[in-house]
Amino acid sequence: MTSTDADSDAPPSKQKQSPFKALRETVLLLVFAIALALVVKTFFVQSFYIPSESMEPGLIVNDRILVEKPSYWGSGGPQRGDVIVFDDPGGWLNGLESAQPMSLLARGLAKIGLYPTGGHLVKRVVGVAGDTITCCDDQGRIMVNGQPVDEDGFIRPQKDPPKSCDGPMPSGAMDCDWSAGPVPAGTVFVMGDNRSDSADSSVHLCGPKAQNCDPNDAFVPVDDVVGKVFALAWPLGRAHLVHTPDAFDDVPDPS
């Protein structure tokens, strides 16, 4: 028997995989990947994009951010200085902020957490339950529970025209002369870092001449908070971790 005959009689070392089996394995891997992505999005990390200028200079339009959720599990909740993403408490979203991914593929990927979504708001927590926020001291600083907060490290400086305080409101007469709180239990008071262009809690306060205004509209329920921004992921040239500043460390507990 020649070597050629022996080779032809030997059993193959590896049988070819059937097309059906290959397809089944691919589908199973895809289902597993989607399920894993949904678990990560639901319980751990979710991606969003910045649709407006309200959080400049730190976060600008079209930045991609990552939000983590474990910090607020259980009894944990938003802390002063945290940058948070939250659902619309009711009538806060403008046209830009309510925008969603346009293409069918992008919307599908967004559903499972593989594409940044809109339809949420991004603001900084200035007051938590029990806090009283006052604008402003003689140096133009926001005060929380009577303690001035130096926010120069993260809010947008306004030079033209010069900004007289760190918390102006678009109502004109109330600029630099308003207060909020005590913040109701289970809610937070939030502001954008771009104080002159942010539809935040201060905008929803009831002014002295307001009619049919609900004072609770200025506060965001903690149940609406998706999570805390912990990273700017895109563009890569500006990517960095987002930390809670120490500007609020000296704020006393509410009395």
Rank of each mutant, 00 (worst) to 15 (best):
Q147S: 13
F86D: 09
G119P: 05
V128I: 14
G119I: 04
T134E: 15
A110H: 07
L121N: 05
N94P: 00
G146A: 06
L104F: 14
V126C: 00
L93V: 09
Q100G: 01
V126D: 00
V128A: 11
A129I: 00
L96G: 01
K123D: 12
I142A: 08
G130L: 05
V126L: 11
V128Q: 07
V149R: 06
G113Y: 03
L105T: 15
Q100R: 14
H120Y: 12
V144H: 09
K111W: 13
A110R: 10
G118I: 12
T117C: 00
T117G: 13
G127E: 04
G95W: 08
K111H: 07
S98E: 15
F86N: 09
G130I: 09
L104C: 00
A110Y: 03
F86Q: 07
R141C: 01
G146S: 01
V126R: 02
K111Y: 10
C136S: 14
Y115A: 13
G130R: 06
M102V: 15
P148Y: 07
T132M: 12
M143L: 14
V128R: 01
D137T: 05
C135A: 11
V149S: 03
Q139F: 11
S103Y: 05
L114V: 02
L114F: 03
R107I: 08
T117Y: 01
K111T: 11
G118Y: 13
K123I: 10
P116H: 06
G140L: 11
T117E: 13
A99L: 12
G118V: 12
G140N: 12
A129P: 01
G119Y: 05
Q139L: 13
L93Q: 10
E97W: 08
L96D: 15
L93T: 10
G127Q: 04
R141P: 01
L105H: 00
D88V: 10
V144Q: 10
T134N: 09
D138M: 06
G119R: 02
L105S: 13
G127N: 07
R107N: 14
P116S: 04
G146F: 06
V149Y: 06
V122Y: 06
G127F: 08
G91L: 03
M102C: 02
V85Y: 03
G146E: 02
